[in-house]
Design a protein around this nucleic acid. Structure first.
Length: 302
DNA sequence: CGCTTTTGACCTGCGC
DNA sequence: GCGCAGGTCAAAAGCG
């Protein structure tokens, strides 16, 4: 928070270097957005999306995988060392019947953060606390999710998070935790849960975009991904790999055009796939032998 | 003392 | 309409 004031709001742009395709998603109930066929995004699009999230992602050539347009993106954030995937045009999420023509890249910046709206309307004390939410449509922010093979649930990503809830997840012995960015002006949230199939895999879902830069890295606005990794306390201890989370409805759409079994790629040897959330949860653990190759350069030397 | 986490209750959306 | 599951709130407790 301290560093938020003197930093520009947007991470430095990074030229897209791959031809990866990303798909929109809807882990949350989506509206009509998926009907416009906008499941797939070009890399330019995706880059924009991720920038909108505040994630300073950069395509790493050595980590690029997928000659069929399925590239791997390595985030500049220390723990986001894998492919990430924008999940849906969240502006339309949860408000399916309303204006959902917004693009991903513009939605979150234009959406009044749901929380801010709520917090601005303090109900009288007599009114039950939840009444303030009545009549207010939830407006979902852009999301992306990824899987991480990690011992720790809450990964360091350079931002500070406050836990605001935890719920038991059906069919899973592991609870799901809900975090919110501690920056009062930042409405980004994230969910963290462990895969019931493989407890070593953490599924993290981000929602919204940061309106500030990381607090963990003083030069967040200008750091490269390598320098970021250099400062990552978890880097040496974590084996990380991320599966982009492709959820629910797009599953059918994507499966025919994008999805492939985890495949080994020439340069990285990493495996990557675009799969549905359900599928994702059932996905077998990553081959440990591949992890080393998919870890960004800054982490490899450790 | 301030911030974070825990936790039970409440709200909302969706499927049946 | 009802029930369920997910998501959120906010008071209380914990911690540094």
């Amino acid at each position: 928070m301290e560093q938020d004031k003197d930093k520009p709001l947007q991470p430095p742009p990074h030229p897209p270097a791959t031809t990866a395709e990303f798909a929109g998603d809807s882990s949350w109930p989506l509206g009509a957005d998926d009907s416009d066929g906008s499941y797939f995004y070009s890399v330019d699009r995706n880059s924009s999306i991720l920038s909108d999230f505040g994630w300073n992602l950069e395509p790493v050539q050595s980590n690029r995988i997928g000659s069929d347009g399925d590239g791997l993106w390595v985030p500049a954030h220390p723990d986001l060392t894998g492919s990430v995937e924008p999940i849906g045009t969240a502006a339309a999420v949860g408000t399916s019947s309303r204006s959902n023509n917004q693009s991903v890249s513009t939605s979150s910046s234009e959406d009044p953060p749901e929380k801010s709206t709520v917090s601005d309307e303090k109900p009288p004390l007599e009114i039950p606390r939840k009444s303030k939410k009545k009549g207010q449509k939830r407006i979902r922010q852009p999301r992306f999710a990824f899987m991480t093979k990690s011992d720790v649930d809450h990964l360091e990503d350079g931002y500070r998070w406050r836990k605001y809830g935890q719920k038991a997840v059906k069919n899973s012995p592991f609870p799901r935790s809900y975090y919110r960015c501690t920056n009062s002006k930042c409405m980004v949230k994230k969910r963290v849960e462990r895969s019931s199939e493989d407890p070593s895999i953490v599924i993290t879902t981000y929602e919204g975009q940061h309106c500030h830069h990381t607090v963990g890295f003083p030069r967040a606005g200008i750091f490269s991904h390598e320098s970021a990794f250099a400062g990552c306390p978890l880097a040496p201890t974590m084996s990380q790999i991320y599966y982009p989370v492709q959820m629910q409805r797009e599953n059918a759409t994507l499966s025919s055009s994008v999805s492939q079994p985890c495949q080994t790629h020439d340069e990285v040897g990493g495996s990557r796939n675009v799969i549905a959330a359900d599928e994702l949860l059932q996905h077998p653990p990553i081959d440990e032998g591949l992890l080393g190759d998919i870890v960004p350069p800054g982490m490899r030397n450790r």
